[in-house]
């Protein structure tokens, strides 16, 4: 599994680093910065979550994350949008996904960040398996992929 993420710049098994994305995205013409982070929460559907194990089909997920960044810029008018997703077993409170969007004014940055996280949830082949404190686990059933994501 070591080279599963070879060539992937948007998927990582390492902790996500907001400071790196802020540095990568900064520009002198921007007056707005929107940041969205997804974190592992303790409860879901009445069960106590101990951890979440994230997996991905990496080649497809990497391509979609790159496309989502470009879509967020093109559709929402932001100057830049960066998306990173973490894989592997995450503990309560860990960051699973980060979106950073910058634009001249706030509306475009907010819109781009919102567009990007919704697109991640609907169209990127990433799965979460919740590990519960009682020793059981379950995959979270999310959104079906469709051929519209056939690039």
């Amino acid at each position: 599994m070591a080279d599963e993420l070879a060539g992937c710049s948007h998927l990582t098994r390492a902790p996500l680093d907001l400071a790196v994305l802020l540095e990568l995205s900064q520009g002198p013409e921007d007056g707005a910065l929107a940041v969205f982070g997804g974190t592992v929460r303790r409860h879901n559907d009445g069960k106590q979550v101990r951890a979440i194990d994230y997996s991905a089909y990496a080649p497809f997920a990497e391509r979609r994350l790159q496309e989502i960044e470009a879509e967020a810029v093109a559709r929402c008018g932001a100057r830049i949008c960066l998306v990173r997703h973490r894989l592997g077993e995450l503990s309560i409170g860990d960051l699973s996904v980060l979106v950073v969007a910058r634009s001249e004014h706030r509306a475009e940055a907010f819109a781009a960040a919102r567009h990007a996280i919704e697109a991640v949830k609907h169209s990127v082949p990433i799965w979460k398996r919740e590990e519960y404190s009682d020793g059981t686990h379950a995959y979270v059933m999310g959104c079906e992929l469709h051929e519209e994501h056939h690039g």
């Binding site: 997804g38 994230y54 991905a56 089909y57 080649p59 497809f60 997920a61 990497e62 391509r63 997703h85 699973s96 996904v97 996280i117 991640v120 949830k121 609907h122 169209s123 990127v124 082949p125 990433i126 799965w127 979460k128 995959y139 979270v140 059933m141 999310g142 959104c143 079906e144 992929l145 469709h146 051929e147 994501h149 056939h150 690039g151």
Partner: peptide, 29 residues
């Protein structure tokens, strides 16, 4: 279903050596 990094239709013919990838509903974020 995907081949490589693209979704394929159920009508798609798979050739020898191709690898079909099964992608159940996704739950990233």
């Amino acid at each position: 279903c995907a081949v490589g990094d693209h979704i394929v239709s159920r009508e798609r013919l798979l050739q020898r050596g191709e690898r079909l990838v099964l992608l159940p509903p996704v739950s990233g974020g």
